[in-house]
């Protein structure tokens, strides 16, 4: 059986994580191709619903990456993002999906090595957890829609 390749959505702040991902590339550090980066102007721009919708549409894990505490370009967007991530984790726990599929990380623009490491670790954690349990139903629905068209 083909090994499960998780889809990871990473909301990356323009001022830190996005640049750190770039830095990882410049440093020739590999990070998993599973990670799909969405650039945001600040991690505080990420609402709980963005994370939920990513999972609902089939992402296996979602990471929100913001600046180190005290370093937010917009004062405290990263603190707000961390609270929203906690809110989503509680919500996922309530529906029996467990909180582990969503994580908040903080780093600075110069931490290319850290970006490669945390995305690698997160990808492996999600791989161990297995596919997002909603995926099978999503695929079934897509097959039914294709058959009826």
């Amino acid at each position: 059986m083909k090994e499960f390749e998780p889809i990871i959505v990473a909301f990356c702040c323009h001022y830190c994580a996005y640049t750190a991902a770039d830095m990882a590339g410049s440093m020739r550090l590999a990070y998993p191709p599973n990670v799909k980066i969405i650039k945001v102007p600040c991690s505080g721009k990420v609402s709980a619903i963005h994370v939920m919708r990513a999972l609902e549409k089939g992402a296996d894990g979602v990471m929100v990456a913001g600046c180190l505490e005290g370093d937010c370009h917009f004062k405290d967007g990263n603190v707000k993002a961390a609270k929203r991530v906690s809110q989503v984790r509680r919500l996922l726990d309530e529906i029996g999906m467990g909180p582990e599929r969503v994580e908040m990380v903080t780093l600075s623009a110069g931490m290319g090595e850290r970006f490669a490491r945390v995305t690698g670790e997160f990808t492996e954690k999600i791989r161990a957890l297995g596919p997002n349990p909603v995926k099978e139903t999503l695929a079934g629905r897509a097959r039914a829609a294709a058959a009826s068209s």
Partner: peptide, 21 residues
């Protein structure tokens, strides 16, 4: 509106997890 969207998403995922929609 925000809470409606969140609840909607959570309920749909809870159902899909059980193989229903």
């Amino acid at each position: 509106r925000k809470e409606v969207a969140l609840l909607s998403s959570a309920l749909q995922m809870a159902r899909m997890k059980e193989g229903r929609t």
